Structure formats: structure tokens, C-alpha cells
Simulated scan of single mutants.
Amino acid sequence: MDLKDKVAIITGGASGLGEATLRRFVAHGATCAIFDMNEERGAALVEELGDNVIYQQVNVTDEASVSSAIQSVEAAFGPAHICCNYAGIAWAAKTYHPKNGPHPLEDFKRVVDVNLIGTFNVARLAAESMMKNDPIDDDGQRGVIINTASVAGYEGQIGQVAYSATKGGVIGMTIVIARDLAELGIRCNTIVPGLIHTPMFDTLPENIFQALENSVLNPQRLGKPDEIAKTAQYLVENDYVNGECIRMDGGIRMTPR
């Protein structure tokens, strides 16, 4: 599927990996909808990037919020062809801590709600929109869903029990969504990032930042957001990639801490 003249929904599109993907997709001729909670940043990106971008304030865990936003996308650009799910949150707490007690259950539920249920919520409703498209080629392709997991879904570190559970869930549902939607001409794949240089890393002390870079196999640095965006572009454009979880991590294998 060529990006040119396609309609893309990008959750978490106002920052980080989502913003990098937004910029790459727009540069290649796609029209994009930013689904994000950060209204100020979303509006700034629309002003910068022009008429091919709209912003929708969306809570990915809320069915009505997502449905309303997709209707707005369809009114502005037409049905979606692409859905990139980047929206997510992180939380650190041990299963049990001698001083703090058991992991707070409400915090575990909150991470699951955003990272796992939110991803599925947007994916299922985006698929409904994609079904309004006529097939765009002889293979009957209508759309592609790209979810985002993490290497923590395979090798979670101490304190990442909630985050790792959600990312493992995203990995696990990839092939099932691909199978569910295959006869409809909709593909589903998942990007599995390692240590990607987003703004939160800029607050770390130099020695910790260097240690993180040294933990990467090759190249020995943090990944760049546009390297994730390039992978998203590849997954859109290569119609024979389906049901895959692609690690983008420089060969890192996370240690317990």
C-alpha cells in the first residue's frame, strides 16, 4: 500500500514515536489524524504541517471518544486506510515491596486499560472504518493496523510487571487480529521498540544515559524515533508482511534491572 493519498490515524501522534511517524507519513503524501490528549501540541502540529493533518482529542480507552474521532476523520478525509497505535503509559512498581506492600491494583488496571485495551479499542474501530474502503489493489487490500509493543513484552525488567503484561498482550494479539481481519483485506503487525531516544531520556544523568547506550548490541546508541517511523512506513508499503512482531532494538536483550 502506497502512503500517497491514504488516510492514517496515529494515536499518540503529538509526540515521540507518533510524531515521527506523522511527519514521515505526511512527507510521503498521506493525510493524517492525530489522536492524542495533548491539545496544545496537536494544534501546533496541525498549524505547522498544514491541511493534510487534523487533531482530535481522544481518550483511547473510551469507545465514544474514539468513535467520534473516527467519524470526524471520515468527514474530513474519508475512511481510514492506516492505523498506527502508539498511545501508551509506563508505570514502575514491584509485585510486592517490603516497604510499599503489594503492587497497587488500580495502577495495574490503569496501565492495562491504556496500553492493551486502548490499543485494541482503536484497532477494532479503525478496522470498521477501513471496511468502508473499496479494495485498492488486486489482492483486495483495504487497510493496515500497526500496533506498538516493547522489548519489555519479552524481557521485562524489575518493576515493569504491569507495563510488560500489556506489551506482551499486544504482541500476543497481533497474529489473532491478522487472522480475524485477513478475509477483509486488513493486515496487522506490531513494532517492538527497544531503547528509543525520546525526550524523557534527556533528563537522565550522563552516566546513566551512557550506560543505556552501552547496553545496546549494535549500533551502540539509542534508537531514533524516525527509525521506528521508517519501520511503520515499511509495514504499510510491504503488503506481504502480516501478523509479524518486528523488534527494533539494536539487538538488545534486557537484563533484570
Score class of each variant (00 low, 15 high):
M1C: 03
T95P: 04
N100V: 10
R142Y: 02
G169Q: 02
F77K: 10
I252T: 08
C84Y: 06
E39T: 05
K224P: 10
D226F: 10
Y154H: 10
G118F: 03
K6D: 12
S129Y: 07
V151T: 10
F25A: 03
Q157R: 14
I146K: 09
V241I: 12
A20Q: 05
T166Y: 02
G16W: 06
I34V: 03
E19I: 06
N218S: 06
D249T: 12
D226R: 01
V241A: 08
Q157G: 07
T166V: 00
C84P: 15
V241T: 09
D180R: 11
Q57G: 03
R24A: 07
I191Y: 02
G250H: 02
Q141V: 07
F108L: 05
L49T: 04
H197I: 10
G156P: 11
E227K: 02
G251S: 03
D138V: 13
D5G: 08
A75C: 02
H197Q: 02
A43M: 15
T255M: 09
M200P: 14
H103C: 06
T190N: 04
T148H: 00
D62E: 11
V161Q: 11
P79T: 15
L184T: 15
G101R: 08
H81S: 09
I146N: 03
G29I: 08
C84R: 13
I136V: 10
K167W: 09
A8N: 01
C84N: 12
C83F: 13
P98S: 03
I117L: 14
A165R: 04
E48A: 10
I9G: 13
G29T: 14
V26G: 13
E227Y: 00
R253G: 07
N52P: 07
P102A: 01
H103K: 05
L116Y: 06
I82E: 08
P104L: 00
G194D: 09
T174S: 00
T198K: 03
I82Y: 15
R221F: 13
L125P: 05
G185M: 10
T198S: 01
A123M: 01
H97Y: 13
R23E: 01
G140F: 07
V144P: 14
A27I: 13
K224A: 01
A178Q: 12
G13D: 14
Y86T: 05
A76Y: 02
V122F: 09
D139N: 07
I9N: 14
R24T: 10
Q210L: 13
I146P: 14
R179I: 12
V53F: 01
Q210V: 08
I82L: 11
L22Q: 12
S72K: 09
V144F: 09
L17V: 13
V7H: 12
H103Q: 07
C83S: 07
K4G: 08
L195Y: 07
E244S: 11
